[in-house]
Design a binder for these strands. Structure first.
Length: 216
DNA sequence: GGCCAGGACACCA
DNA sequence: TGGTGTCATGGC
């Protein structure tokens, strides 16, 4: 069992997941910040609240103070914190990329990652989500789902650092943004549908090779 | 009513 | 560098 063979099985079983919620690259960035430590439906409510007010764009958010953003994104939780983070990201986007997320695609992937990590409130996972899903760079995203699924499969211990887990995947997979994009999407779908299912995994394509099949 | 969710960060040793 | 508290809403 390798990351490659696991992906082949997922793809064969379900087809491409074709996934990241967000209509524009900018929405993807905002979504990546709003979903921090919350369930997606909560982030989505906040996203729609921004959209309803015509604020879900660089031009819409530019110039808004965190105090003005906060009440709009309340449903996403930790809204004061996230409002500051959104304001910081919008400021960064204006300074480095003329407010155009598309311009981030011109940057070298790891250089972009380092820049994003310098923005307060953007950590490794959020930086990689933005680099991969908004800018199309081949950086593998590690999240709680990734750890849960691959710990369960016995491929990682689960207590490795973010960068260690990312290296584990990137050393074993071709450097391909489309692959990384769909792989992460497959993991999210899998983790939601199967790995939290109790008392047994339900229709999991990896059930027969999962050492913990049937275990809650 | 408690626990958890697609994190990040400050603070501490 | 590793562990812990904090931020806070909504679903189950």
């Amino acid at each position: 069992m390798t990351p490659k063979s696991i992906y082949r099985r997922l793809l064969r079983a379900r087809g491409p997941a074709g996934w990241w919620p967000g209509e524009t690259p900018f929405e993807v960035c905002v979504g990546a910040i709003l979903v921090q430590n919350t369930a997606w439906p909560n982030a989505d409510r906040a996203l729609r609240a921004l959209k309803d007010r015509g604020r879900l764009s660089y031009e819409g958010l530019r110039g808004m103070a965190a105090e003005q953003i906060a009440p709009i994104i309340r449903p996403s939780g930790t809204f004061n914190v996230k409002a500051r983070r959104l304001a910081a990201f919008v400021d960064f986007l204006g300074r480095r990329y003329e407010g155009r997320v598309e311009h981030m695609a011109r940057e070298e992937p790891w250089a972009l990652r380092r820049q994003l990590l310098d923005v307060p409130g953007i950590g490794r996972e959020t930086a990689d989500c933005i680099a991969l899903y908004a800018a199309g760079h081949p950086l593998f995203v590690v999240d709680g789902y990734t750890r849960r699924v691959f710990t369960r499969l016995g491929l990682i211990r689960g207590d490795e650092s973010y960068d260690e887990v990312q290296r584990f995947f990137m050393r074993r997979l071709p450097e391909d943004a489309r692959l990384f994009n769909d792989y992460h999407a497959q993991i999210v779908v899998l983790a939601k549908q199967s790995c939290r299912a109790r008392p047994v995994c339900v229709e999991c394509p990896l059930d027969d090779v999962c050492p913990k099949r049937g275990v809650a």
